[in-house]
Amino acid sequence: MLEIKNLHAVVEGEDIEILKGVNLKVNKGEIHAIMGPNGSGKSTLAKVAAGHPEYEVTGGDILYDGESILELDPDERAHAGIFLAFQYPVEVPGVTNTTLLRESYNTIAASRGREELDPLEFDDYISDKLELVQMKRDFLDRSVNTGFSGGEKKRNEIFQMAVLQPKLSLLDETDSGLDIDALKIVSDGINKLHGDDDAVILITHYQRLLNYIEPDFVHVMIGGKIVKSGDKTLALKLEEQGYDWLEAHATVNGEAG
């Protein structure tokens, strides 16, 4: 489904390289976790995959369903089924959640040749999804993320994921800033949404999320590269030993997994 090949990227207009040759392969039905210390390039990888204009790809490629998506605009990537749950969801004052989601749902539906929903049908459709993240109805009429608490913003991202039904979900530190109850709700939601036809990439700092969502693969990213890959036991080892034992490894051998 997704294949990242020797990906290099810099901040647009600057020389500092943030991704220094990332390789990653994700198949349908899989859950991957990417872990790593602050500044290792995890969030950048997610943003680059979604096409954030702040970054420029200087080498390598991203293949999605076998084709390069580097030339696609962010909205075209979204139409193709790529969803990014933002680490810091953006506030859009005056635009309600419903407006955004209907607009979004219908453009994606149209691009995939599915039927668009009128406001009433759409209302029915999203009511079910609300329960998934245990949010109240009035939440729909509030401006997107405006005045939301940190936890509400994160739940809103998962709610949007539920509505838009992406094929590939990149969840950027969706667990950070959540208390234990909210974390359970969010993880439950993600687990319910995940199936055989889609893939999920979890970007996280902490092992605790992986107690609730079981990854098939765990990758460690340090210094703009994936330095180690393994199964979920790798996450436990990281929890115990930190990243130090891998950092030396990173400078010697960038190739892993």
Partner: peptide, 17 residues
């Protein structure tokens, strides 16, 4: 970018905002 990531074109995103 946020709205584009949700599938909305740049023009429409601006209009919405």
């Amino acid at each position: 970018f946020y709205l584009q990531q949700r599938g909305i074109s740049e023009d429409d995103a601006i209009s919405l905002i």
